[in-house]
Nucleic acid binder design. Structure first.
Length: 468
RNA sequence: GCUCCGGUAGUAUAGUCCGGCCAAGUAUACUGGCCUCUCGAGCCAGGGACCCGGGUUCAAAUCCCGGCCGGAGCACCA
């Protein structure tokens, strides 16, 4: 079994691409086959050099490892040969009608005069496409069926003229094949046995096989699956570009997006993405999974690895009285041995104001890792008095930081789409103080801020929230 | 509009091809309880679904017909 993942190098990969790539790879693995990464770079107007590398990087991070990496643009000459064969067989013709005419004829199901021209004329015009004609003056079309109910069969375009440099080939070619022509031939030539693609291509199956049959080439098995949508997210390249232009989001790795780069920034593990994709499966059912599904998988994976740290939002200064020790030692994890950190007990501590407000004067509660305290003054500078170390499960427990704690920001991505509308306020910034042991951790580490959630450290003063 | 493809709990899926073991399994979410130095994890329990209508059959989530709803395609993009 040989499968292939054919992204166009015109943007960053998102979780929808991950679905295709992972399914392709898993199928090949299951049958001890091969998996090909093919850059579908037949449109020099869209392909950009940076994306070839970016896509490889992202796939590598995802843990998807192709055995073969190739570009459709490496085989343009072969595709020219097949085009010529088709013309010689009278199965393709050069159309010199105006684009508008072609369009309206297609809608009406009318054949144009070019379709009736002789093979020799077509061959001559085909040659002229390389030198004489310019863009929009001539295209090579497949002789399908202008009356077919399947509009993909109404003499689709096989080659068009594009006078723009290609990121890999420069000005070497100006006649470029379309997806509809390049894909079946490449698949067949590459030995692809099972070509998987998303549902919106279903109507093109007939064309795919017609081209292969016309050329006498081996026919792979075509399989389609539904496109992945995520609740509250935007995957469309076009729409993301608009959002960036409008300044609503910052970049392609904005944590509100579902690009692989964004997921990585938030602390999603590749294993979680894979498990999630496999749980979704390959059916044609249109579904819109919620983030809960992937979050719970990711949580299971990172729960064991994430150090627990105290981050206090909306801090309020509170005086601590009668504490007998100068420093305490607190484990990084409740049940895994991830080490511990020393915390200096300063005269004043900081609590979350929301926590403090819930307590009444004389209430007893516990400062996690430190001990039990009683609130003996609530106004002005609140004061708590130490009352002992012994654990009492009935006591409410809160987290806290000391005076050496550092200013810190957590970026919390919310749904970018809410009730069908773009939510402009979808990136919440929560400011607060974090214990200074954050300095010992590395950028990229996943932590759990106690009673807050899992976050990935982005800098020594900033983290991005993944999920609860 | 025409054509094609879908429709199982709130969400995502298993089961549909080859009808019976499905008074429908699992995950997630939710609710309650236990446990816990986190609002995290873990454990236990609970409610919750076969789009509708006909037909075939001893038997239908599964096969057939009709309808309804949803999505996609109709480019010199992929």
């Amino acid at each position: 079994m040989i499968t292939r993942f054919p992204p166009e190098p015109s943007g960053y990969l998102h979780i929808g691409h991950a679905k295709a790539a992972i399914i392709d790879e898993e199928y090949a693995k299951m049958y001890n086959g091969k998996f090909i990464l093919r850059f579908d770079d037949t449109n020099p107007e869209k392909a950009k050099l940076e994306f070839y590398e970016a896509i490889k990087e992202d796939l590598n991070w995802l843990g998807v490892k192709p055995q073969i990496i190739e570009n459709t643009s490496d085989d343009i000459e072969k595709l020219y040969d097949y085009a010529r064969k088709l013309i010689e067989k009278g199965l393709a013709y050069v159309c010199i009608c105006k684009p508008e005419t072609i369009k309206s004829n297609r809608i009406k199901g009318i054949e144009c005069n070019c379709r009736a021209s002789k093979v020799e004329d077509n061959l001559e015009k085909w040659e002229k496409m390389f030198k004489v004609f310019s863009k929009n003056e001539a295209i090579l079309r497949f002789k399908g069926d202008m009356k077919s109910l399947n509009t993909a069969m109404r003499d689709p375009t096989l080659f068009r003229i594009l006078d723009i440099p290609h990121p890999l080939k420069g000005y070497k070619y100006r006649v470029w094949p379309t997806y509809d022509f390049a894909t079946p031939i490449k698949d067949s030539l590459d030995g692809v046995t099972h070509a998987l693609r998303t549902k919106e291509y279903e109507l093109r199956d007939e064309l795919y096989f017609s081209i292969l049959r016309a050329l006498g080439l081996r026919e792979p098995i075509l399989l389609e699956f539904s496109r992945l949508e995520m609740k509250g997210s935007i995957l469309s390249k076009r729409k993301i570009r608009e959002l960036i232009q409008q300044g609503i989001i910052e970049s392609w790795d904005d944590p509100r997006l579902a690009t692989l780069r964004a997921l990585r920034r938030r602390g999603y593990f590749p294993e979680a993405i894979r498990e999630f994709i496999l749980s979704i499966g390959v059916s044609k059912v249109e579904s819109e999974p919620t983030w809960d599904l992937i979050n719970s998988i990711n949580r299971r994976i990172i729960d064991a690895k994430a150090k627990r740290l105290f981050f206090v939002s909306n801090p309020i200064k509170v005086k601590l009285e009668s504490f007998p020790k100068e420093r305490i030692s607190v484990n990084y994890h409740p049940d895994r041995d991830l080490g511990k950190r020393e915390i200096k007990i300063t005269q004043n501590l900081f609590f979350e104001i929301e926590d403090l407000e819930k307590f009444n004067l004389d209430d007893k509660f516990r400062l996690m890792g430190l001990g039990n305290v009683r609130l003996i003054q609530k106004e002005d500078l609140p004061i708590v008095k130490f009352e002992g170390f012994e654990l009492d499960h009935r006591l409410k427990k809160i987290h806290w930081v000391n005076e050496d704690s550092l200013p810190f920001e957590v970026f919390v991505p919310l749904n970018l789409v809410q009730d069908g509308e773009i939510n402009r306020d979808s990136l919440k910034v929560i400011r607060g103080k974090v214990e200074d042991s954050i300095k010992k951790l590395n950028v990229g580490e996943i932590v759990q801020f106690v009673r807050f959630g899992f976050c990935r450290i982005e800098a020594n003063n900033k983290a991005i929230f993944a999920h609860k």
